[in-house]
């Protein structure tokens, strides 16, 4: 009986000891984009969107650090600013035209509202964004569609970038 009581007190004591030191949650997230181009579908005789992988470089306007450096991809993770409501990026695409490679730069401005969300004293705050508008140059970009404006821990695909035919 006494042994059982000591065991119960030990278990209860251990249960009450909880870690309070470091943030154990993965709280990193960013806006997700997919790149498309329009291709002509002979069977229905219409242009249809097709996911498009190509060498891409991406950096924030005024930032030297490249988020993507000639990376062959059709999906992008783009970090919107936490402390400003406009995030501007330079998207550089490289495509082969006949026998030569053509590099094109476009600038994209994302307008967004930011909300601070407290998680815990170990992890601090996250800042979620809601995209309120997009403006871009159209050197290679045809259009950008906002699919899901909420950029947070749950967001999957936020925008679709359509590239023009070259």
């Amino acid at each position: 009986m006494r042994r059982a009581l000591i065991y119960i007190l030990l278990v209860v004591g251990l249960m009450s000891c909880t870690s309070e030191e470091n943030c154990m949650q993965d709280l990193k997230f960013s806006m997700k984009a997919e790149i498309y181009r329009m291709v002509f579908d002979q069977s229905i005789e219409q242009f249809v969107p097709e996911k498009y992988s190509l060498p891409i470089s991406l950096n924030g306007l005024g930032r030297d650090s490249l988020l993507y450096d000639s990376t062959f991809t059709s999906t992008l993770n783009i970090p919107l600013q936490k402390l400003d409501s406009i995030s501007s990026f330079v998207l550089t695409t490289t495509i082969q035209v006949d026998t030569s490679y053509v590099t094109t730069k476009d600038t994209i401005d994302f307008h967004h509202a930011n909300s601070e969300e407290f998680i815990s004293i170990e992890c601090g705050c996250i800042v979620t964004n809601v995209i309120t508008g997009v403006a871009q140059t159209t050197h290679h970009i045809d259009s950008i569609i906002v699919v899901s404006p909420e950029v947070d821990l749950q967001s999957k695909n936020n925008i679709k970038i359509y590239l023009s035919q070259r």
Partner: peptide
């Protein structure tokens, strides 16, 4: 809650 740091590593801003 005080002294809550909001750090934007890519954009290099802190509040």
């Amino acid at each position: 809650l005080s002294n809550v740091e909001i750090k934007d590593e890519y954009w290099g801003t802190v509040a």
